[in-house]
Amino acid sequence: MGDTQTLERGITPDAPPRLRLTDAAVKRLMRATGIKSVIALGRHFGYPPMTWWRLRVGLYDCRISEAQQLADCAGWPVSRMFEQVTHDA
């Protein structure tokens, strides 16, 4: 049986791109805070370990306010802190 679904006008078939916290941003945050452990860094910002991991691989949709807090701590713009995920994480 063939697929009979049709795309409604104004609805896009693809989800928006996922973003992940870059490795360079993690290193910058570690330097800015003086924290040596990636897990401790996440804890410092109030993330449980699994949520912190999900943010780093692009599986967690953080709020703009969360992204801005990380960027402010690093002294970088949000656009430099995050990158688009190019594969299924």
Rank of each mutant, 00 (worst) to 15 (best):
residue 30 M to R: 14
residue 47 Y to A: 01
residue 11 I to V: 15
residue 48 P to C: 00
residue 33 T to Q: 06
residue 15 A to H: 11
residue 76 W to I: 14
residue 7 L to A: 13
residue 57 V to P: 01
residue 33 T to R: 10
residue 27 K to H: 10
residue 38 V to T: 10
residue 4 T to M: 11
residue 85 V to N: 06
residue 13 P to A: 14
residue 14 D to A: 15
residue 22 T to P: 13
residue 2 G to M: 11
residue 33 T to V: 00
residue 60 Y to V: 01
residue 86 T to L: 12
residue 47 Y to D: 07
residue 66 E to C: 04
residue 15 A to V: 05
residue 82 F to P: 00
residue 39 I to L: 07
residue 12 T to Y: 10
residue 34 G to I: 01
residue 3 D to A: 03
residue 1 M to G: 15
residue 73 C to P: 00
residue 80 R to L: 13
residue 1 M to N: 09
residue 76 W to T: 11
residue 78 V to N: 02
residue 87 H to E: 15
residue 23 D to N: 11
residue 83 E to G: 07
residue 44 H to V: 04
residue 89 A to R: 13
residue 79 S to D: 15
residue 62 C to M: 15
residue 14 D to T: 10
residue 5 Q to L: 12
residue 21 L to C: 02
residue 20 R to T: 03
residue 80 R to F: 12
residue 83 E to M: 13
residue 74 A to W: 04
residue 10 G to I: 05
residue 10 G to R: 09
residue 6 T to I: 10
residue 70 L to T: 07
residue 82 F to I: 13
residue 81 M to W: 07
residue 39 I to C: 02
residue 77 P to M: 13
residue 69 Q to L: 11
residue 55 L to K: 03
residue 85 V to W: 10
residue 25 A to L: 05
residue 78 V to E: 11
residue 33 T to D: 02
residue 70 L to W: 05
residue 43 R to T: 10
residue 35 I to A: 02
residue 66 E to A: 12
residue 3 D to T: 06
residue 21 L to A: 08
residue 19 L to T: 07
residue 56 R to G: 01
residue 58 G to I: 06
residue 54 R to H: 03
residue 61 D to K: 01
residue 71 A to G: 05
residue 43 R to I: 05
residue 83 E to Y: 08
residue 43 R to K: 14
residue 2 G to L: 12
residue 37 S to F: 02
residue 12 T to C: 07
residue 72 D to C: 01
residue 51 T to C: 05
residue 74 A to G: 06
residue 73 C to F: 05
residue 55 L to M: 12
residue 36 K to P: 00
residue 11 I to E: 12
residue 10 G to C: 10
residue 66 E to F: 06
residue 11 I to F: 05
residue 23 D to I: 08
residue 85 V to S: 08
residue 69 Q to H: 02
residue 37 S to G: 01
residue 26 V to I: 15
residue 23 D to K: 12
residue 31 R to F: 08
residue 44 H to P: 04
residue 14 D to E: 14
residue 16 P to M: 14
residue 53 W to S: 05
residue 74 A to E: 06
residue 15 A to W: 08
residue 57 V to N: 13
residue 19 L to H: 11
residue 88 D to S: 14
residue 5 Q to K: 13
residue 31 R to I: 09
residue 10 G to D: 15
residue 66 E to Y: 06
residue 19 L to D: 00
residue 76 W to P: 00
residue 35 I to M: 01
residue 22 T to M: 08
residue 4 T to A: 11
residue 44 H to Y: 15
